[in-house]
Design a protein around this nucleic acid. Sequence first.
DNA 1: TTTATTTATTGAAATATTTAAATATATCTA
DNA 2: TAGATATATTTAAATATTTCAATAAATAAA
Lengths: 91, 91
Amino acid sequence: MDAKKAEKISKALADPNRLTILKEIKKSKSCLYCVDLNNTINLAQPSIAHHLKLLIDSELVTSDKEGRNVRYYLNSKLLDEYIAFLEAFKI
Amino acid sequence: MDAKKAEKISKALADPNRLTILKEIKKSKSCLYCVDLNNTINLAQPSIAHHLKLLIDSELVTSDKEGRNVRYYLNSKLLDEYIAFLEAFKI
DNA sequence: TTTATTTATTGAAATATTTAAATATATCTA
DNA sequence: TAGATATATTTAAATATTTCAATAAATAAA
């Protein structure tokens, strides 16, 4: 992973609502419908959509359309690559 | 580590110049004088000082005054805690 | 003690991010 | 097909971040 990609992922992680989304994806056992986030996150629907977009643009989260719902998944392979990038700062 | 702390660390990591600083700290074999960054990073001195401050505020970097120089170190214990926080998003 | 060097702070401009209202799109259900 | 539901996009306002010039503070060297 190059620094530009790591920067984008760091930005995606640099917001409390996006960290909550990742936690909810974990809690939902591997997937999550967007509509469920409206109960958890105290933001208007377009704001939640915006945060999901940033997570998807960073590729930390992948999505999967099911009818009119969308399921969200953590891209744990990319998370591992990001962690490896961070580990490289250590001596 | 709580989400608030992880958010702060993510923010600290969400800038190309700050990633460069961390890389330079690594390259300098565990420590670095601020003045050395002026050659590596194409920013005015107050901008570099600002980025160093954010890294120090996040506690990812510690500093150590030596005369009129300051040495910078990676806080690898905190980096490990941050990585553990991220790992917890995985199923 | 004067001058130079290193780092930090302040203030202001430029840019980026976050948020929500309004609206659009897609799909489901009656 | 009409209405309901889920998600996305556009636009604009509020807020935060990045950057640098000017300046301050601390220490070293002459």
